[in-house]
Design a protein around this nucleic acid. Sequence first.
DNA 1: ATTTATGCAAATCGTTTGCAAACCT
DNA 2: AGGTTTGCAAACGATTTGCATAAAT
Lengths: 145, 145
Amino acid sequence: MADDLHHAISARLTGADQRYTSGRRSLVDALVDADRPLTAAEILVAGGLAQSSAYRNLSVLETCGVVHRVAGTDEFARFELAEDLTDHHHHHLICTNCGLVTDFTVSDRLERSLEAAMERVAETTGFRPDHHRLDLLGRCADCGS
Amino acid sequence: MADDLHHAISARLTGADQRYTSGRRSLVDALVDADRPLTAAEILVAGGLAQSSAYRNLSVLETCGVVHRVAGTDEFARFELAEDLTDHHHHHLICTNCGLVTDFTVSDRLERSLEAAMERVAETTGFRPDHHRLDLLGRCADCGS
DNA sequence: ATTTATGCAAATCGTTTGCAAACCT
DNA sequence: AGGTTTGCAAACGATTTGCATAAAT
């Protein structure tokens, strides 16, 4: 099924002199199964690793570009698979009440405008943009208005 | 100078049964003087309050809509004055190396596109967007490439 | 006088780290 | 064997909280 994905991840880790251990694979599987970024606590439960191993491996996976850290509005770190592994460029809906983070996409037209804005900033300031982050903050369906 | 601002803030606090104490005014002054979001530590130094008072007052100011919390990529909380007090809608450049957060603006055209995307999401999903957050992540001038 | 804000020191809690045992190659 | 990963328990650090004092109305 997601065999290509695991293969790509394995290659990425090997390239950084890291092993794709069963523990790391569990963490990745948890993220593959989810349709939204997961908190460290959620990954910890789903992955079945000890707390310290989960955090340590998430750190390794992040450094190797397999996993990406997502900033919400609450105090919990959230993680998702890197976009270049899933080929799914997206943005986040963030509930300001319960902290839930879900994915959404925008039109190609808007994406292109965002890219253009990034380039303009690069020309104007000393800042070198790498990626953008577009989030919508509000109330999720469960938290109503 | 920024007398209107302080007056508006005072009114906003009073409306929430809170006082605009000298300590709170110090915190606000620190934010007024800055041209970018400040970390709690920076505000603490500039404001001259005890740590606990600074955090407690920032919390009050945030609840009353005077101050807004800004999410960077590091572990430090950052704060800025609420946009509806400064009339300066803007976005953030976030350095992925040192954590520095600075302000930038985009064209009205792009802002309108973002608003339109928000409305589309509201119609499509159960999510009720309130505001958006557009950040550019990369290297600040000091951190080079 | 009564309520609210302050500062100090201690507690909280998500995350990180030291270390000895288990694992891989 | 040699180096890496694991799990446990302890440490860490930004933020929060309890409590007695000071300030404001």
